[in-house]
Design a protein around this nucleic acid. Structure first.
Length: 274
DNA sequence: AACGCGCCCTGTCCGC
DNA sequence: TGCGGACAGGGCGCGT
């Protein structure tokens, strides 16, 4: 998906465009994007008449808060897009799976070519459960190098995989995991428990830097991604290793390597990263 | 319990 | 131009 920076950008855009809107109707055209326990009729019945209080984010999820405590949790999978109907490129949404109509004529479109994404309606109490399943926010004050060091103790998982587990740290996906490891100068294959304290500090800093820069850039530009306005992401963030197989490392010139870890690509500089 | 794997589904790109 | 295969930013359920 959209990882944390993309979800953050979408949430901010939507918050600006649809906050305060009252739901007139919900239309689900592809019910397979509903999380277990949800149904099109339940969604429509539960949300009709409710006001959007704000749109926020938790990990990679866009969270729409309604009055009365209901929350629509949107996980965008690989190709999910969430935009307001009055956004510039709303016409380019060719796989609309659900539509939330507001009483003033605006609407929120959920588009998802591969339909790996999920919409999940929660009340205050079931949201607390879900929230607790997700790990620490990597941009929060609590996420220190020391905290990351402690979290990694005891796990034999390669760090690239470790970072993708949303129960540990929430919001990091394959692009930013690889980018942060490059900045920390640690190989994606390194077992989490062998990360040193100093490296944990560098990895925390690498994550913080790459995620916040990507937010400033309104998300990374990779083909499918669209922000809440329907536009592709910014170009300010230059990826250092992701997708750069064979190209020279920006730090030392050595060709970037691509390997496969549990069926997903990992990229690193064999000289800079140990 | 923690971990790796296969799978969900569609689109795109590359080589032949 | 057409076609097969590889690959894609995620996450769940399963067997070990």
């Amino acid at each position: 998906m959209p990882e944390l920076p993309e979800a953050e950008t979408i949430a901010r855009d939507l918050d600006r465009r649809v906050r305060g809107g009252i739901v007139a109707g919900v239309h689900v055209t592809r019910p397979d994007i509903l999380a277990p326990g949800n149904s099109a009729t339940k969604l429509a019945r539960s949300l009709r008449g409710h006001r959007i209080e704000r749109v926020g984010r938790r990990g990679k999820n866009v969270v729409v808060d309604f009055d009365g405590g209901l929350k629509l949790v949107v996980n965008l999978g690989m190709t999910g897009r969430l935009i307001a109907s009055d956004a510039p490129r709303s016409a380019e949404m060719r796989h609309v799976a659900a539509r939330i109509e507001l009483d003033d004529g605006r609407s929120v479109l959920y588009d998802d070519a591969r339909r790996f994404g999920r919409l999940d309606l929660r009340d205050a109490s079931t949201w607390t459960v879900r929230d607790a399943e997700l790990g620490i926010e990597p941009l929060s004050k609590d996420f220190t190098g020391e905290r990351l060091f402690a979290l990694t103790r005891g796990s034999i998982v390669p760090l690239r995989n470790w970072l993708l587990d949303q129960r540990r740290v929430a919001g990091v996906g394959n692009i930013y995991a690889n980018e942060a490891l490059f900045r920390a100068r640690v190989r994606p294959t390194r077992r989490a428990r062998f990360l040193t304290r100093v490296e944990a500090i560098r990895l925390r800093d690498g994550l913080h830097e790459v995620l916040s820069k990507a937010i400033q850039a309104r998300g990374t530009t990779i083909d499918d991604y669209r922000d809440g306005e329907g536009e592709s992401g910014g170009f300010q963030l230059r990826l250092q290793v992701y997708g750069r197989t064979g190209e020279p490392c920006f730090r030392c010139g050595t060709p970037i390597k691509r390997i496969v870890l549990t069926n997903r690509s990992a990229f690193y500089c064999p000289r800079c990263q140990r």
